[in-house]
Every structure is written in C-alpha cells, then in structure tokens.
C-alpha cells in the first residue's frame, strides 16, 4: 500500500467523520483514494469533500470539529501554508482535528519532490499567536497508517490540532501495512460541541476572540498549561543502535530511513554510529537527547532542509557535545553514502 493510501484507509477505519481536501502533489492520492472508496455511501458513512481551496478545507474542518466530529484534512507544503490561518483559529478554539502534511521542497511552489523544510512551520507555530500543534513524524507506511488513529486520539484527549508531518517519499513509498478492524464512528459528541442548544444547558460557543486583554492572557495561560501536560506525557522517539554509539545521527521521516543504511555502512567500517529519531517533533524529546549527548563524541542532525530541526537539537544538547548539520533541499534526496562521507569528514576534523 502507498503511504498516502495508508492515511486514507486509516481515516476510514479509525472512524473519522469527515475529510476535506484539495488536490496538491504529492498527496493527491489521499483524496483520490477516499473518493474511490466512497466511504459515505459504501463504508463508514464518513464525509469526503473536495473543497475549493486549502483555506476552505481547513475551515470546513473547523466547522465539523466544532461539532465534536473527527475531522481531518491533508495537503502538501504550499497548501499547508494556506491552512495556517485556520490552524491558528483551531488551536485557539481548542478544537481537535488532524492535518497531514506530505511535504515537498520549498519555499514558494518549490519542487514536487520530498522535502522536510516545513519543520519550523510545524513545530514553531506556522500561524499567528502562541499556540502549538502536536506533531507526529512517521517514517514507514505502517506509521502513516497508525498515526491517523493515534493523531485523533491525542487531538481529542487534549482538544488540540495534531499534525502528521510526513514527506513526499513516505507518501509515495509502497510497503506492507497491517490494517486494523473498522471502528464505528462515534455517536456521542463532546459536551462542549455545537450540536444545537437544548433547554437543559447553556449555549455552546466556539470562538477565538477575547477583546479584554486579561481574558485573552488567561486563555493563553490555559493553553500553555495544556501544552506543558502534553510535553510531560506525549513524547515519543525511537533509538537505533545508540547503546554503544560514539556518534549519533538525529533524523526523522525519510531522512531517518536513509540514515539506517548510513549506520549499517558505518558499522561495517567500524564506526560506532547510532541514531535517535524523534517521533513527536513537538513536543521534541529534548530530555532524552540531552542524556544521550553526554556520552557521545558528536551529534549529526540530518534533514532534507537547509537546517531547521538542528536548532532544536542544539537546544537539547546544550553544548554537551558538538552538533553538526547535514542537509539537502529543494527535493533532492540524499544518499546514505554521502551522509557517511560527511560524518567521516567531520570525525577527522
């Protein structure tokens, strides 16, 4: 199954209520797969709608999520930029939803080949205001599949938007996937949702405006307190041959797949290289990386960008050990060999 198709199938099976999308390479298969499957009529009853723009799609998600429904959208880098306004509102309104970015090379229209240059946008808040997205970075098609259900679970647990930051390579890659049984769509909606004001309760309002500054600040404090709980409870990462490693690569997504091979090649040459893969890019697993960095000679941040995650790596490592960056961008995919060459040259400095 293709990475993009895995997302679509997972959405149907996890009981998602609605998908709103707009075509853009390299993620159009998500919308196409859903259109072909026609879950509204043939499977779970999930709504699938092609919107007139990414902006409309994310606002449709806002509307459905405001009704307590499991709603999602997907796009690729330029389209995700268009969704930032909506994401800021969704985060401010504390609505749960899932957004998938099958990212490509940027900036601007960039290229349609894989890229990881949307890291800042994803983890630092791409829209305006103090907010956070929970960001999951899959590196297999199985994870593409699994993170849809996980994403919705986290989104509803914290009433917060969740972003799956994938890339064109994982999206287009074909791998075997273990599918899970079809879940029912939820019939009970959250108490805060706008479902029609019944006489037994006050009206429910989904809004993001607080003209009074102290009210807005209190709202921000509430959000920050929530983000702190997320940071304490939801950090996910994977370690690969770090036990005896003298050097560690930090990479996520497609870069981490490529670096698996780099590590194999390095080990064949006797270089004790390991890898630390953040799965949650926000919250970033900084404490674990800090611990690991105490016992190694160097850390290499490897990304398909001009250097974005490396900033969080440096912040986490806190000068315990040198941090070097290697990246390719614009849609160019690095080879395991060139990463190893870079590491060897840095080791010999």
């Amino acid at each position: 199954m293709k990475g993009n198709e895995a997302i679509a199938e997972a959405a149907i099976r996890c009981g998602c209520d609605a998908y709103f999308g707009y075509p853009i390479t390299p993620q159009s298969e998500i919308l196409e797969y859903l259109a072909l499957e026609d879950p509204y009529n043939k499977r779970s009853g999930m709504v699938v709608l092609q919107a007139e723009s990414e902006i409309a799609a994310i606002n449709m998600v806002y509307g459905a999520a405001g009704c307590g429904k499991k709603a999602m959208t997907s796009s690729s880098s330029p389209g995700i930029s268009l969704k930032q306004e909506g994401l800021s509102y969704i985060a401010a309104g504390e609505l749960p939803c899932l957004v998938v970015n099958v990212s490509r090379g940027g900036p601007g229209l960039g290229s349609i080949q894989p890229g990881q240059a949307d890291y800042f946008q994803s983890v630092k808040g791409g829209g305006h205001g103090d907010y956070r997205l929970i960001v999951l970075a899959p590196n297999t098609v199985q994870e593409q599949y699994d993170f849809v259900d996980l994403g919705f679970e986290l989104a509803f647990k914290y009433r917060n938007p969740v972003l799956i930051l994938s890339d064109g390579a994982i999206g287009q890659m074909m791998e075997k996937v273990v599918l899970t049984p079809q879940k029912d769509r939820s019939v009970t909606l959250p108490s805060w949702a706008t479902t029609g004001k019944t006489p037994d309760r006050e009206r429910n309002r989904i809004f993001t405006l607080n003209i009074e500054t102290d009210v807005q600040e209190n709202h921000n404090r509430k959000l920050q307190a929530k983000y702190k709980v997320v940071e304490e409870n939801e950090i996910r990462y994977q370690e690969f041959k770090t036990d005896d490693a003298e050097y560690i690569i930090v990479a996520y997504g497609i870069s981490s797949r490529i670096c698996m091979k780099t590590i194999q090649l390095a080990r064949e040459k006797g270089i004790k290289l390991g890898m630390f893969r953040p799965i949650t890019l926000w919250p970033f697993p900084k404490q674990k990386l800090f611990e690991l960095s105490k016992n190694v000679k160097g850390i290499f941040a490897v990304e398909h960008s001009c250097g974005q995650m490396v900033e969080d790596v440096e912040l986490a490592v806190k000068n315990n050990t040198p941090v070097k960056f290697y990246g390719r961008s614009g849609g160019v995919i690095m080879t395991p060999q060139e990463v190893l060459l870079f590491i060897e040259s840095e080791m010999n400095k």
Binding site: V47, L49, I55, A56, A57, M60, A64, G66, A71
Partner: peptide, 11 residues
C-alpha cells in the same frame, strides 16, 4: 460558508 459546510455536512 466553509465553516457552515463543515457543520452541515456532518450535522
């Protein structure tokens, strides 16, 4: 109208 679409389609 987009928000309303999201609401109406699911409700």
């Amino acid at each position: 109208p987009a928000v309303a679409t999201g609401v109406k389609r699911t409700m």
